[in-house]
Simulated scan of single mutants.
Amino acid sequence: MTYRLEQLLPDHDRREYHETRVPGPPEIAWAALTDLRVRDLPLSTLLSRLRGGPKAWFAPFDGGDGRALDNVPPRELCADPPRELILGDIADYTGSGPTRPDVPRGDLESFLRFDEPGWTKVAMNFRFAADGRETRLSTETRVLATDEGARKAFAKYWLLVRAGSGLIRRDILSAVRSAAAERTRPGI
Protein backbone atom coordinates (compact mmCIF):
# COMPACT_ATOMS: atom_id res chain seq x y z
CA MET A 1 0.00 0.00 0.00
CA THR A 2 1.18 3.49 -0.81
CA TYR A 3 0.87 5.89 2.10
CA ARG A 4 0.72 9.67 2.14
CA LEU A 5 1.81 11.85 5.03
CA GLU A 6 -1.83 12.74 5.61
CA GLN A 7 -2.60 9.06 6.21
CA LEU A 8 0.32 8.41 8.56
CA LEU A 9 -0.23 11.40 10.81
CA PRO A 10 -3.60 12.97 9.95
CA ASP A 11 -3.87 14.72 13.31
CA HIS A 12 -0.98 16.83 14.53
CA ASP A 13 -0.06 19.35 17.21
CA ARG A 14 2.65 21.12 15.23
CA ARG A 15 3.31 21.49 11.52
CA GLU A 16 6.06 23.00 9.41
CA TYR A 17 6.04 23.34 5.62
CA HIS A 18 8.64 24.51 3.08
CA GLU A 19 8.91 24.22 -0.70
CA THR A 20 11.14 25.12 -3.62
CA ARG A 21 11.33 24.65 -7.37
CA VAL A 22 13.93 22.25 -8.68
CA PRO A 23 15.09 22.08 -12.31
CA GLY A 24 14.12 18.94 -14.18
CA PRO A 25 11.56 16.19 -13.69
CA PRO A 26 10.71 14.53 -10.34
CA GLU A 27 13.10 11.66 -11.09
CA ILE A 28 16.05 14.10 -11.11
CA ALA A 29 14.92 15.75 -7.87
CA TRP A 30 14.37 12.33 -6.23
CA ALA A 31 17.87 11.19 -7.19
CA ALA A 32 19.35 14.47 -5.95
CA LEU A 33 17.66 14.05 -2.55
CA THR A 34 18.46 10.38 -2.08
CA ASP A 35 22.10 10.88 -3.16
CA LEU A 36 22.62 13.91 -0.88
CA ARG A 37 25.64 13.60 1.43
CA VAL A 38 26.14 15.08 4.89
CA ARG A 39 28.91 17.29 3.45
CA ASP A 40 26.29 18.87 1.16
CA LEU A 41 24.48 20.26 4.21
CA PRO A 42 26.97 22.44 6.12
CA LEU A 43 24.31 24.51 7.89
CA SER A 44 22.38 21.41 8.97
CA THR A 45 25.59 19.78 10.18
CA LEU A 46 26.51 22.86 12.22
CA LEU A 47 23.05 23.12 13.79
CA SER A 48 23.00 19.39 14.61
CA ARG A 49 26.41 19.61 16.27
CA LEU A 50 25.31 22.66 18.27
CA ARG A 51 22.17 20.78 19.39
CA GLY A 52 24.31 17.83 20.45
CA GLY A 53 26.12 19.82 23.15
CA PRO A 54 29.82 19.72 24.11
CA LYS A 55 30.15 16.02 23.33
CA ALA A 56 29.18 16.69 19.69
CA TRP A 57 31.06 19.99 19.52
CA PHE A 58 34.43 18.34 20.08
CA ALA A 59 33.77 14.99 18.42
CA PRO A 60 35.84 14.25 15.33
CA PHE A 61 34.04 14.89 12.05
CA ASP A 62 34.67 12.49 9.17
CA GLY A 63 33.88 15.01 6.43
CA GLY A 64 30.36 13.83 5.86
CA ASP A 65 30.64 11.16 3.18
CA GLY A 66 27.55 9.38 4.55
CA ARG A 67 24.16 9.73 2.92
CA ALA A 68 22.29 12.63 4.51
CA LEU A 69 19.04 10.67 4.86
CA ASP A 70 20.87 7.95 6.79
CA ASN A 71 22.17 10.54 9.26
CA VAL A 72 18.94 12.23 10.37
CA PRO A 73 16.94 11.00 13.35
CA PRO A 74 13.76 10.25 11.39
CA ARG A 75 14.16 7.02 9.44
CA GLU A 76 12.47 6.10 6.19
CA LEU A 77 9.00 4.72 6.83
CA CYS A 78 7.82 4.38 3.24
CA ALA A 79 8.50 5.63 -0.26
CA ASP A 80 6.63 6.09 -3.49
CA PRO A 81 9.40 7.06 -5.94
CA PRO A 82 9.49 9.65 -7.41
CA ARG A 83 6.41 11.12 -5.73
CA GLU A 84 6.89 10.98 -1.97
CA LEU A 85 9.37 9.87 0.66
CA ILE A 86 8.20 9.72 4.29
CA LEU A 87 10.48 9.61 7.32
CA GLY A 88 9.38 9.11 10.92
CA ASP A 89 10.59 9.07 14.50
CA ILE A 90 9.19 8.47 17.96
CA ALA A 91 11.02 10.13 20.84
CA ASP A 92 11.00 12.39 23.84
CA TYR A 93 12.89 15.38 22.49
CA THR A 94 12.70 17.54 25.61
CA GLY A 95 15.85 16.36 27.42
CA SER A 96 19.46 17.16 26.65
CA GLY A 97 19.20 14.61 23.87
CA PRO A 98 16.30 12.60 22.47
CA THR A 99 15.33 9.37 24.16
CA ARG A 100 13.42 6.74 22.24
CA PRO A 101 11.06 3.94 23.23
CA ASP A 102 11.95 0.33 22.54
CA VAL A 103 10.39 0.37 19.08
CA PRO A 104 12.20 -0.49 15.85
CA ARG A 105 13.13 2.76 14.11
CA GLY A 106 11.96 3.02 10.53
CA ASP A 107 9.33 0.29 10.98
CA LEU A 108 6.08 1.56 9.46
CA GLU A 109 3.72 -0.76 11.35
CA SER A 110 5.35 0.02 14.71
CA PHE A 111 5.07 3.74 13.96
CA LEU A 112 1.39 3.45 13.06
CA ARG A 113 0.48 1.35 16.14
CA PHE A 114 2.52 3.27 18.72
CA ASP A 115 0.39 5.15 21.27
CA GLU A 116 2.19 4.87 24.64
CA PRO A 117 1.84 8.05 26.72
CA GLY A 118 4.78 10.39 27.17
CA TRP A 119 6.17 10.37 23.64
CA THR A 120 6.09 12.42 20.46
CA LYS A 121 5.63 11.04 16.96
CA VAL A 122 7.20 12.98 14.10
CA ALA A 123 6.52 12.35 10.41
CA MET A 124 8.34 14.27 7.71
CA ASN A 125 7.89 13.97 3.98
CA PHE A 126 9.44 15.10 0.75
CA ARG A 127 6.87 15.43 -2.02
CA PHE A 128 7.78 15.78 -5.70
CA ALA A 129 5.31 17.23 -8.22
CA ALA A 130 6.06 17.84 -11.89
CA ASP A 131 5.42 21.44 -12.91
CA GLY A 132 6.38 22.07 -16.52
CA ARG A 133 10.16 21.69 -16.85
CA GLU A 134 10.60 21.86 -13.08
CA THR A 135 9.63 19.92 -9.99
CA ARG A 136 7.87 21.46 -7.04
CA LEU A 137 9.65 19.89 -4.08
CA SER A 138 8.04 20.35 -0.69
CA THR A 139 8.72 19.08 2.77
CA GLU A 140 6.22 18.97 5.59
CA THR A 141 6.88 17.95 9.17
CA ARG A 142 4.01 16.94 11.46
CA VAL A 143 4.34 16.37 15.18
CA LEU A 144 1.83 14.56 17.40
CA ALA A 145 2.24 13.98 21.13
CA THR A 146 0.73 10.82 22.57
CA ASP A 147 -0.69 12.58 25.65
CA GLU A 148 -1.22 16.02 27.17
CA GLY A 149 2.00 15.97 29.24
CA ALA A 150 4.12 15.23 26.19
CA ARG A 151 2.19 17.87 24.21
CA LYS A 152 2.97 20.58 26.79
CA ALA A 153 6.63 19.56 27.08
CA PHE A 154 7.08 19.51 23.31
CA ALA A 155 5.45 22.95 22.95
CA LYS A 156 8.22 24.44 25.12
CA TYR A 157 10.91 22.55 23.21
CA TRP A 158 9.41 23.69 19.87
CA LEU A 159 9.83 27.32 20.89
CA LEU A 160 13.57 26.70 21.12
CA VAL A 161 14.13 24.58 18.02
CA ARG A 162 11.56 25.67 15.45
CA ALA A 163 13.79 28.26 13.78
CA GLY A 164 16.66 25.77 13.51
CA SER A 165 14.30 23.09 12.24
CA GLY A 166 13.16 25.42 9.47
CA LEU A 167 16.76 26.29 8.58
CA ILE A 168 17.60 22.59 8.27
CA ARG A 169 14.64 21.93 5.98
CA ARG A 170 15.52 24.93 3.78
CA ASP A 171 19.18 23.77 3.73
CA ILE A 172 18.07 20.36 2.42
CA LEU A 173 15.80 21.90 -0.23
CA SER A 174 18.58 24.24 -1.36
CA ALA A 175 21.08 21.38 -1.61
CA VAL A 176 18.61 19.31 -3.67
CA ARG A 177 17.96 22.29 -5.96
CA SER A 178 21.73 22.75 -6.51
CA ALA A 179 22.32 19.04 -7.11
CA ALA A 180 19.42 18.83 -9.56
CA ALA A 181 20.69 21.93 -11.41
CA GLU A 182 24.07 20.23 -11.76
CA ARG A 183 22.41 17.05 -13.09
CA THR A 184 20.34 18.96 -15.67
CA ARG A 185 23.15 21.22 -16.86
CA PRO A 186 23.73 20.85 -20.61
CA GLY A 187 26.54 18.47 -21.44
CA ILE A 188 26.05 16.34 -18.31
Score class of each variant (00 low, 15 high):
residue 36 L to A: 12
residue 27 E to A: 15
residue 123 A to K: 01
residue 98 P to V: 05
residue 3 Y to W: 12
residue 74 P to V: 01
residue 33 L to D: 05
residue 82 P to E: 09
residue 157 Y to L: 04
residue 154 F to M: 06
residue 82 P to S: 04
residue 135 T to E: 08
residue 166 G to I: 00
residue 158 W to Q: 08
residue 44 S to D: 03
residue 91 A to G: 11
residue 125 N to E: 07
residue 180 A to D: 05
residue 140 E to I: 02
residue 139 T to D: 00
residue 61 F to Y: 15
residue 34 T to D: 13
residue 93 Y to S: 02
residue 138 S to G: 10
residue 53 G to F: 12
residue 108 L to C: 09
residue 73 P to W: 05
residue 69 L to T: 02
residue 148 E to N: 10
residue 135 T to R: 08
residue 94 T to K: 08
residue 73 P to V: 10
residue 175 A to W: 02
residue 184 T to K: 07
residue 161 V to G: 01
residue 173 L to Q: 00
residue 61 F to N: 09
residue 101 P to Q: 10
residue 111 F to E: 09
residue 141 T to S: 04
residue 136 R to M: 13
residue 184 T to L: 10
residue 141 T to Y: 00
residue 58 F to K: 10
residue 100 R to L: 08
residue 139 T to F: 00
residue 180 A to W: 04
residue 186 P to S: 07
residue 25 P to R: 14
residue 92 D to N: 10
residue 7 Q to L: 02
residue 145 A to M: 11
residue 65 D to S: 11
residue 94 T to G: 12
residue 29 A to G: 06
residue 129 A to G: 08
residue 157 Y to W: 08
residue 41 L to S: 03
residue 140 E to T: 08
residue 8 L to V: 05
residue 148 E to T: 13
residue 119 W to G: 01
residue 180 A to R: 02
residue 107 D to M: 05
residue 77 L to M: 02
residue 131 D to G: 03
residue 125 N to W: 02
residue 62 D to V: 06
